[in-house]
Design a protein around this nucleic acid. Structure first.
Lengths: 186, 186, 186, 186
DNA sequence: GATGAATGAGGCTTCATTCAT
DNA sequence: CATGAATGAAGCCTCATTCAT
């Protein structure tokens, strides 16, 4: 699966040859079919299997007294170190680029990841409002605003990293500053 | 080219058959080769040809006395009506999904579109700072923050429109509220 | 189709390679797919196309005054010269050997050929009874008895021709002798 | 071997997978290779092993005073109950359908079964002629005529049983009636 | 003996590309 | 210019066979 992920990530679904996956994994072509019904299943299994762990962290409730801004900072660092900085980033990119052609996968992703992430974000926003850290509830209606910089960073860097690498940590920090007001002590 | 765009947009580059493009265009398969060297060239020509017009608007300098917030509002509306609401949205999505596999195309896109858009955004941010409409210059360093909602909307809707359509106008307005402060009179 | 028939006839359906069919036909492998959806369709189309002409003859009504025995003699000669002695014999053999694995084909064969042949045989038997050429009507209930020697000859020779070729003309003549009584003047 | 016979019988030689044979037999795939060199050998061994018992009965000499017609009746009943009505019918069908592709098997079948059956039939025909039960010796030259209904029944039912099942007992009885004259007391 | 995971040759099928008309 | 039949390389998948355990 690691070999397949690498191939899918670097060539895309359609351009990946199972021959190459097998070669990279150090097995014969037929061996793949002992574990996966076909290329499509292999692809979907990989994404499914690696997508779920990504979401785990956000659901853990934050310590009761931590400022919400700090919670978001923590989550952002988590994303950068555990997703963006790792092979999991490829999973996110594959979802974005291949998802439209795999409706079943997109639905799975939505149910297993997106809905949970959104719910978690909404809960955090509500917490911040309740604690007087946020003035209004626009963000409760559009919690996506808390993660646009993350997705944007993945997209940007997959296309333009060569020309102008974009630091996801800086981008998300700037967004948090917009939301919570500029930090006074960094 | 319109036929090819439709096919590429709905199936992706690799899964598009020139047979289908020809059928949709009402010509014979061979005819395509009278105009384009091969499938790859066809794809790149289409994206190039349709990408350029997208950028035109942003470069026109804004009326001298218009509040910068209004300029951004106008540009956002322009994006929604002229890109998101039209077939051009497919072009943006194709750039995002196929770009990684077409480095030449990504470079072209970066030079012809992204750099110019960024420069335009930077100029607008500088204008806003100069006019006292923005306090600090984080946005001058990361002008991408002004467009993350647009890109995010395209990505989101290409994957999850079925489950939870996301209104790009609302998302960009909320982002502008974050940047400029909540509008008092709409 | 002729090339495919030859290959199917000499190797059976499963063992036939489309590569060989193409080679024998003097075309490229892909060309086959311009005319037939897949190997299975190719096989079925061939059998269908060549099976129908076989049945034509038997349906023509016999001259009013000809002894029924002569009508059968004529049909038997027709079978020997137009089917057994030609490439069409391979069609019959293919139906027998591959039919069980192609239920759709067997049904088609039954509807298009067998039912018609049986009806024709029944009509002839009835005619013979009406003219006093046959005593009882067992054959009207089991008209298959008029063709068992033909089918048997095809089966026998496909297996044992090398060891003991069986003359279908002699076998069917002997059967007709059994049915109508030994011919007095040959 | 029973498992393999079932698989071969229902799918044909080429379409049978050793995986399925092993599964049906409740052993591992490799186990098959402890007993048979390869798939072809397995197939031939099965047919050989089960073909021989079929022929045994016909060679037992008939009771001296039994009318030959009765002997044939008895043999016909034996075929129906011991072959047609049992799994052995599959063996006969496999010989017919796969024989052309296994010349060695066809030869074995001819030597071990056909020749003996033919000899037995000839002896019976000669006995009938000697006893005045048959007028002429056409059947001595073409003893196959005594079994065409049996083979035909197997072929017919393997193809058309769904549409019009054919009773082998009725067919062979009718043929015997043709040969020996209609039975007066059944 | 028995297992069953692994192998890889082989065959079907697709589709970008060509070219005679 | 346009056609579309023909090509054949390329890739997915199957399954008989092997062999370390």
């Amino acid at each position: 699966m690691a070999a397949a992920l690498d191939e899918f990530a670097s060539r895309g679904y359609a351009a990946t040859r199972l021959d190459d996956v097998a070669k990279r994994a150090g097995v014969a072509k037929g061996t793949i079919y002992l574990h996966f019904a076909d290329k499509e299943t292999l692809f979907q299994e990989i994404v499914r299997a690696m997508v779920v762990p990504i979401v785990m962290n956000i659901e853990a409730p934050p310590p009761g007294d931590m400022p919400t801004r700090q919670v978001f900072d923590h989550l952002a660092r988590l994303f950068v170190s555990e997703v963006f900085g790792t092979r999991r980033r490829a999973i996110v990119r594959l979802m974005l680029t291949e998802g439209p052609r795999f409706p079943a996968l997109a639905e799975f992703y939505y149910r297993e990841v997106i809905e949970r992430v959104l719910a978690g974000l909404r809960a955090l926003v509500a917490r911040a409002v309740a604690r007087g850290e946020l003035r209004d509830d626009t963000l409760a209606r559009l919690p996506q605003l808390m993660v646009t910089p993350l997705i944007f960073s993945v997209v940007w860097n997959s296309l333009f990293e060569r020309f102008a690498p974009l630091d996801p940590a800086a981008l998300i920090k700037a967004q948090l500053d917009l939301v919570f007001g500029k930090e006074t002590q960094p």
